[in-house]
Write a protein that binds this DNA or RNA. Structure first.
Length: 880
RNA sequence: GCGGACGUGGUGGAACGGUAGACACACAGGACUUAAAAUCCUGAGUUCGAAAGAGCGUGUGGGUUCGAGUCCCACCGUCCGCACCA
């Protein structure tokens, strides 16, 4: 009788219901058990889930289910990053309220995630757009404000002209808005900021403790924070040339050692000194204006030449009162880094060199590169920026760069200018404070009131939440809250007079900066239930895309600390890191298809003909030729999408999951192919057949009645089973899912071969018991990856428990090693033969056996043996 | 420009400094079938050879080592991040 095929779509629904009904994935705080918090980056409810989600959540689910089986109390929650621009765009385009649109999407996507069979605790579901969530965020904001972590200031900000809102520095990529892609403009606005710079030092230092984070992400964050050690140096300005009241100019430098190579000073166009000097100098004013107009896009900066304008002001060298230097306004000096002013040392900095050559300023080499002769060393147009020995530097001559730094720094510290030290050591960071004001509707309202008498007043806590008005309009661009007829009218919490609300909302990255904390007690009356947070945090394994390497991950690291400092959060251990381990998975890619007329085609609009090199595609409907394009990230614009729903309906969720986990290492991109999915589908049927065969052939083997001895066939099966179990566990632990899949394949091959052989004749001794055990192992080890299939197999084997609740089996260590080992035999490093020998054989025994091999003596060609290296149980190398 | 990662068969990829190519996809041959599908078995880095076997093989060139895909140096290529940060 031919075995029934496993009907994945039907059985998957069944098991999902069983799990759901048993509420087996709901987590509770249980101090007596070791916890494991597994989290995947929660999705933005854009409409439907895509394959990227499937990959992300499949990985997280394997890890979560595995940890469950290993006895951990697992927290594996899911929620929605539900505020954001697309909802407002939808409102503008389709006249649907952002809230309605968002919740509809959430319903759709929740259904899709449920069809994946994820071991999620849905009782903890949160949506950041719900007042039940954002009211706590408003409370956090008020406490940040009290503590000085939130503040308001006027500054130049990035303005996205398409989304009509401000963007944080982290959200500007190559001069464009991260979401809209529009060229960002600079605008002077009063905005709310979070003082992330107060944490710069800690955020940088603690990167070292994140040993379970990808090196790449840590490096990116370190570069973003951008720490540099240097000095603030004050230069006296010549009274006769300086504007009134401007007695000195402070510059920031990381190279006080090169002070004797200085040939000019330069300030940014927006520097106060530039402004003062412009007052009586129309030409200079015009130059400053030109600098301000200069674009900030990459192309603009690359095209821009180093240009400057001599202000006529002269400064005095700190180490030589008789040495005057010109002060320029220069277009390459940034106002918002350091002091907005520099001293230029052309020989030690390429930008200064370019500038000096253009304006014919002196170029004095002060650092001699190793191996160069001081007498002959010259610099053309290339600055030497590395370390060496000081020259042309008076009291610094002969010192190393480091020594010279110290000497110059300590002299400047002692030296006085106008009664104060001329130089002070200063650590500078590239990181800027996080601007969180957004001129949008669909975000968390900032709980602030503006009163004409009292100024900026925080909303009283009893008045939280400040809810969004339902009846906003979206028919034109701009901030719907600001133009709402009544919403912003309120009374001042301090004096009671008529006042107006803050109409800006918070950056949606604020919402996602603490959701992982909220998951630990999603219904608590306060933002955080400290006890629950202490039990569950930090997240043990966080999984998501590399695109958040800086944005979300840096903000979250800051937020955890800010929440600690405002008394909301406390970690059980000596850390303030929210994510103990991070894994960044690769993207899902697919071939692209273009029609003759040049428009993109969906994969299911294309039909393939031929194989290998002659493979080509035609339009399924018309038969017209199609160009197969490059493999790219699945995207709507290129139409190279495969809908998870279609795959799940046709092949089942297990198949999609298994394919995603096979072959490609999880950190790399995976190419979605129809053939690959079909292959995964075949393996599912294969597992089902193996289990059916065993269940039919050995329906009643008693697990307790383990035979005392096993025949060689049974022994082989047992070894393969225990080894695979061991390897698969280790691979999952290390998130090496592709390796786990390969181990399972290998084991299935061994098992199937043994069964096929046994079917020919009478069953060898112990194979019945070993096969039952092997089936049990096989089903358990595929459990985390293909939970429905394995549940079905578990039942087919006659168990009336749920596999999802079963522990990971114990492994017999004795079965992991062989009595006999195969050792490779090399002659002069080249493999010539191999040797099967007892595992316990000593070096001398192995050596003797190796030298006795015919292949060895042949390879030696009569040369005497000089040396024999024996690596026990691995290899022998005969050197001759 | 600065910083980083990567480079292995037709393809995706395995490989504590120790038998390179596990496992899979695709391919070829065979079995079963009236036939197909499904399934099962076998083969395969490459060159020479009937075979046994030998040579060559992890981007290129050097080096360290008894032994290098793995470590070091230089170069080539691909990808990623930052980008006038003083």
């Amino acid at each position: 009788m031919a075995a029934e095929r496993y009907n994945a779509p039907a059985r998957e629904k069944h098991w999902q219901k069983v799990w759901d009904k048993g509420r087996i994935f709901e987590a509770s705080d249980d101090e007596s058990r070791p916890k494991c918090y597994v989290l995947e980056m929660f999705p933005y409810p854009s409409g439907r889930i895509h394959m990227g989600h499937v990959r992300n959540y499949a990985m997280g689910d394997v890890f979560a289910r595995y940890k469950r089986a290993k006895g951990f109390n697992v927290l594996h929650p899911m929620g929605w990053d539900a505020f954001g621009m697309p909802a407002e765009n939808a409102a503008m385009e389709r006249k649907v309220h952002p809230g309605k649109w968002t919740y509809q999407n959430i319903d759709t996507m929740r259904g899709q995630l449920k069809s994946m069979g994820l071991s999620l605790d849905w009782s903890r579901e949160i949506a950041t757009c719900a007042p039940e969530y954002y009211q706590h965020q408003q409370k956090l904001f008020l406490d940040f404000l009290k503590k000085g972590i939130a503040y308001r200031k006027s500054s130049k900000v990035n303005w996205d002209p398409v989304d009509h809102t401000v963007l944080a520095n982290e959200q500007v990529i190559d001069g464009r808005g991260w979401r809209s892609g529009a060229l960002v403009e600079q605008r002077e606005l009063t905005q709310w900021f979070f003082k992330i710079t107060d944490y710069a030092e800690e955020l940088l230092r603690d990167l070292d403790t994140l040993t379970n984070w990808p090196e790449k992400v840590r490096l990116m964050q370190a570069n973003w924070i951008g720490r540099s050690e240097g000095m603030l140096v004050r230069w006296a300005l010549d009274e006769k040339t300086a504007p009134q009241g401007a007695g000195e100019l402070e510059v920031y430098t990381t190279r006080p050692d090169t002070l004797f190579g200085a040939s000019f000073l330069a300030v940014a166009a927006d520097h106060p000194l530039a402004k003062a000097a412009s007052e009586n100098n129309a030409e200079l004013a015009e130059f400053c204006e030109e600098c301000r107009r200069m674009g900030t896009s990459v192309a603009d900066i690359e095209a821009a030449e180093k240009r400057g304008f001599d202000t006529g002001i002269r400064a005095t060298h700190p180490f030589d009162p008789s040495w005057p230097l010109p002060v320029y306004v220069a277009n390459f000096v940034l106002m918002d880094y350091g002091t907005g002013a520099i001293f230029g040392c052309p020989s030690g900095d390429q930008r200064d060199m370019d500038f000096a050559r253009r304006y014919d300023l002196p170029v004095v080499p002060v650092i001699l590169p190793p191996g160069e002769d001081a007498a002959t060393f010259t610099l053309k147009n290339k600055a030497y920026e590395d370390d060496g020995v000081m020259i042309n530097s008076r009291f610094l001559d002969g010192k190393s760069t480091t020594e010279a730094f110290e000497e110059a720094a300590s002299r400047l510290e002692k030296q006085k200018l106008a009664g104060k030290p001329q130089g002070t050591r200063k650590v500078n960071f590239r990181l800027r404070d996080w601007g969180i004001s957004r001129q949008r509707y669909w975000g968390c309202p900032i709980p602030i009131v503006h009163c004409s008498d009292c100024g900026v007043v925080p909303v009283a806590e009893k008045d939280l939440p400040i809810k969004l008005p339902e009846d906003a309009t979206f028919d034109k661009p701009g901030n719907p809250l600001d133009r709402h007829p009544t919403w912003k009218n309120c009374s001042c919490p301090k004096c009671g007079k008529a006042a107006t609300r803050e109409t800006d909302t918070m950056d949606t990255f604020v919402d996602s900066s603490w959701y992982y904390v909220r998951f630990t007690a999603p219904k608590a009356a306060t933002p955080v239930d400290k006890k629950s947070a202490q039990y569950w945090l930090p997240v043990d394994q966080y999984i998501g895309g590399i695109e958040h390497a800086i944005l979300h991950l840096l903000y979250s690291r800051f937020f955890a600390r800010a929440m600690c400092d405002t008394g909301h959060l406390q970690f059980a251990t000596n850390t303030r890191e929210p994510f103990a381990a991070l894994f960044t998975q690769g993207m899902v890619t697919h071939e692209t298809y273009k029609s003759q007329d040049g428009y993109w085609l969906l994969p299911n609009e294309v039909k393939f003909e031929g194989e290998g090199a002659s493979r080509h595609a035609v339009e399924a409907a018309s038969g017209r030729p199609v160009t197969i394009g490059s493999i790219e990230k699945m995207s709507k614009s290129k139409k190279n999408l495969v809908d998870p729903d279609d795959i799940i309906a046709h092949y089942g969720a297990d198949c999609a999951r298994w394919f995603m986990l096979s072959d490609s290492p999880p950190e790399r991109d995976v190419i979605w192919t129809e053939a690959g999915v079909a292959g995964a589908g075949r393996f599912i049927q294969r597992v089902w057949r193996i289990v059916e065969d065993i269940a039919n052939a050995y329906p009643s083997a008693d697990e307790q009645a383990k035979p005392a001895t096993f025949g060689p066939e049974a022994e082989t099966v047992r070894k393969a089973a225990h080894r695979a179990m061991d390897q698969v566990g280790k691979a999952i632990e290390a998130l090496r899912f592709n390796v786990a899949v390969a181990q399972i394949h290998e084991f299935a091959n061994v098992l199937q071969a043994a069964l096929t052989k046994a079917a020919d004749g009478k069953a060898p001794p112990g194979l019945d018991w070993a096969s039952r055990e092997a089936a049990r192992f096989l089903v358990t080890m595929i459990g985390p990856m293909m939970p429905h299939l394995s549940e079905e197999c578990w039942a087919r084997l006659g168990y009336n428990t749920l596999l999802a609740n079963e522990p990971w089996p114990d492994i017999e260590a004795a079965l992991l090693v062989d009595d006999q080992v195969t050792i490779a035999v090399q002659v002069n490093g080249k493999r010539r033969d191999e040797l099967v020998i007892s595992r316990s054989a000593g070096s001398q025994e192995v050596e003797a056996a190796a030298l006795a091999l015919e292949a060895v003596s042949r390879a030696l060609e009569g040369r005497p043996v000089k040396k024999v290296i024996v690596v026990p149980q691995r290899i022998v190398n005969v050197v001759g």
